[in-house]
Nucleic acid binder design. Sequence first.
DNA 1: TATACCATTTTGGGATACCAAGCCGGTATC
DNA 2: GATACCGGCTTGGTATCCCAAAATGGTATA
Lengths: 238, 238
Amino acid sequence: MNPNPAAVNAASQKGSPMSQMQNVERQLREMILGLEVGPGEKLTERWIEGRFGASRTPVRAALLRLETEGLVGRDGRGWTVAPINLAELEQIAVYREAVEVAAVRITCSCADASAIDVIEAMLDSCDENTPREEWHRVGMDFHIELAHLSGNEFLFRAVRDAMTRLSRARWLEVRDEAALGRAWAEHRAILAAIRLGDADDAARRLSAHIVGSRDRLVTSLANDRRGLRARGFAVVAA
Amino acid sequence: MNPNPAAVNAASQKGSPMSQMQNVERQLREMILGLEVGPGEKLTERWIEGRFGASRTPVRAALLRLETEGLVGRDGRGWTVAPINLAELEQIAVYREAVEVAAVRITCSCADASAIDVIEAMLDSCDENTPREEWHRVGMDFHIELAHLSGNEFLFRAVRDAMTRLSRARWLEVRDEAALGRAWAEHRAILAAIRLGDADDAARRLSAHIVGSRDRLVTSLANDRRGLRARGFAVVAA
DNA sequence: TATACCATTTTGGGATACCAAGCCGGTATC
DNA sequence: GATACCGGCTTGGTATCCCAAAATGGTATA
């Protein structure tokens, strides 16, 4: 009954056994985050079922979980890929500023130099030969791992979830080399402040970094709205 | 096939039609939050199925959603009611301090006097004749509604979810009249600061209120740990 | 031509059958 | 008596079937 052998291959190629539900959830999440299905697009349980070669039970479980991540939503009785919502993006920026700053303040008071080195190494791993995709991923992981250092599971999850919600929009954000370089410099400055244990400085820099990122994102999206709609993406105005 | 008519009655007595899934989810959540099922207790899908007169499909959906709320968790292959975890409670306090303070700062800059009056009225609705249960509920709603005033959906949800996770422990917290009176005074002082638009003062008072609340809760639970275990509640040490 | 109405199809919600893995109790062997 | 083994029972995971409601599309009528 499996029309898509790739689905089961993806499941079995991993050493650990992976349930259909985890499989569907992971693959569908990747499709959504990778914009293989456009924001605002309708989803039917039966289509997903056929697409991944799983029955409706794991499909429904995956949809329920992705709903809590904000990646899919209900449209009346049915499901839709969450549209890109400018107002929501701005609210998420405020939210992540609150939790990231709280996390970094905690980290400053119990900084572990070697852990910070690991994060700095992540930044170093990107150079001019690194694909744009990788820069995005590392830029997100920087914030996630930084929050992880706080040791607070809730701050960590909050940052991770916020970055997930932002990631589709970041993907579309136009970032030239100069902007990326500036962002990386800010990242390094934040790490330096943490190393010194200067919580106020780290918080101020992180806050400014997030606000700047938000402003660039919103401007960029507002300008590109027409192009996005042309690609079939639902973009909700702020 | 319905061994428990009460379940369907609860569904039909509401004017709006409620799906089985919502029904199971709501009732199971109430059972967990009301400590009708003890923290750490094992749950089987079949038991829930029989208890609420629903089939496994809505039961599984409800469990998946409650899992994201942190009220149930996986124990290997099965399900358990989330234990009360002291370390987690402390982390939640840090988390909610970050988001509540952020929310109240926003509210200060766009305070709506009438909305604040509504919240103050909530506080006023409690007097010496009000049952303890109601004081708890209003105390939680105070923080939730305050966050709601910020207009930021993510800060609001964060506070609401945090309060949900804390509520089982708050239920056990020993609060004498004097402690409740002090908490209410702090609530009013926070509202007063917001009315004046004094963000720093409001933030300071709110922060102190949350930290105090956390300290009382942790102490109280640590002292009561033996009693809790005697009641069959799993309590994970900090 | 526009619209109201009806038949058909689609779709999510729910129920149930089946399966494999794990748990538990009993038994036989040392 | 202790332990290793085995068989049944429980339980979550999955597939599939049924149903009601909603969407769809075509047709007849004003």
